[in-house]
């Protein structure tokens, strides 16, 4: 018996050497009403339930772990947790009916705060514009992570976006700026896509070493959130993650919106054009192009017919016989 017990004890020893670096998880939840309507398989309520489980799991895995939650609607993005009022000790006095009072206080605190604020956020949401505020939410999450990393040394951070909308609701340049900022801060962006596929978010996950998943069965969201999206960034190189081999990197034309494989780029504003513009002006920034360059680009491929004599002259040096007379002339 002793022998068995000992070996078991020995085997568990290496686990004591786990990495204790705290980690920050920032979740951005999209709340656009139209987006949720378009997904009949699940509701915002079910998703927020699954999300709270994932948040609690993250907090439970290390005592110094932190979370922040943002809601990103069509009209505004705001923090659900932590909120300034909340961090300044204006707690609910235990009268909440949404969360059981027997829950571990930290979990209860997060859960209550998120649910209350999410409710308030949805109440105030109105009709939005064509572009959502996901980029703003991501920017705020990055700013908050920057502050946390300044306060706590060696804090790892990652962002999880629970997205329900496709590319049409995402402004291009701001979201790209977010990706580059996240790259600089070594923060990975994970994307849990419940709606139609989004190539911007695919690129975001690809560029920052995050996980992108099109969730086909939202009923099992808890499992997705606590497995594929739960892996710590430092462990990712050693795990087999749901990989995305074919990221759509093709550009699209600024004017026609068509997909471009081989296009033209304006030297001033770097806009991408599928064809050489009809007039010699950039349709985006209005700068005038060089006529010479334009005419060179417009000129199609031309098959030049070589003169017979010229080809002879080219071929002669290749033959060994032709080399000898050349050597004679050199002398």
């Amino acid at each position: 018996m002793d022998a068995i017990a000992e070996s078991v004890f020995d085997n568990t020893m290496p686990h004591a050497a786990v990495d204790d670096t705290p980690s920050h998880l920032s979740v951005i939840l999209e709340t656009s009403a139209a987006g949720w309507l378009a997904i009949p398989q699940t509701t915002l309520k079910q998703v927020s339930e699954a999300l709270l489980v994932a948040l609690n799991a993250h907090l439970a895995s290390n005592t110094s772990n932190q979370v922040s939650v943002l809601a990103s609607g069509v009209q505004r993005s705001e923090f659900l947790f932590p909120t300034p009022e909340d961090t300044h000790a204006k707690h609910h006095n235990g009268t909440s009916t949404l969360v059981s009072s027997k829950l571990y206080s930290l979990f209860r605190h997060v859960d209550e705060e998120v649910l209350h604020r999410l409710d308030a956020h949805i109440q105030t949401e109105g009709n939005g514009c064509d572009k959502g505020t996901l980029a703003g939410g991501t920017s705020m999450a990055l700013a908050y992570i920057r502050r946390c990393q300044a306060e706590t040394a060696a804090l790892k951070a990652r962002i999880l976006i629970i997205s329900i909308t496709d590319d049409s609701a995402i402004p291009y340049i701001p979201v790209m700026n977010c990706i580059f900022a996240a790259q600089k801060m070594k923060t990975s962006i994970d994307v849990c896509q419940l709606g139609p596929a989004s190539s911007f978010l695919q690129q975001a996950a690809d560029a920052t070493g995050g996980v992108y998943m099109d969730v086909k069965h939202p009923q099992g969201l808890i499992q997705y959130l606590t497995t594929a999206f739960f892996v710590d960034t430092s462990l990712r190189p050693f795990m087999v993650l749901p990989s995305q081999n074919n990221v759509d990197f093709r550009a699209s034309c600024f004017v026609t919106g068509g997909v471009v494989e081989r296009g033209y780029v304006c030297g001033v504003c770097l806009c991408i054009l599928k064809d050489v513009p009809q007039r010699n002006f950039c349709p985006v920034c209005g700068s005038r192009f060089d006529d010479l360059v334009i005419s060179k680009l417009r000129r199609g491929p031309v098959v030049t017919r070589k003169k017979k004599r010229k080809t002879d002259a080219l071929q002669t040096p290749l033959t060994p016989a032709a080399e000898q007379p050349e050597a004679v002339t050199d002398d």
């Binding site: 081989r262 304006c266 001033v268 950039c282 700068s287 005038r288 192009f289 060089d290 680009l297």
Partner: peptide
């Protein structure tokens, strides 16, 4: 004479 227009390719990634 004006600014330049550059021809560029946007390759796709293969695995």
């Amino acid at each position: 004479p004006g600014f330049s227009l550059v021809e560029m390719g946007f390759p796709s990634r293969i695995s």
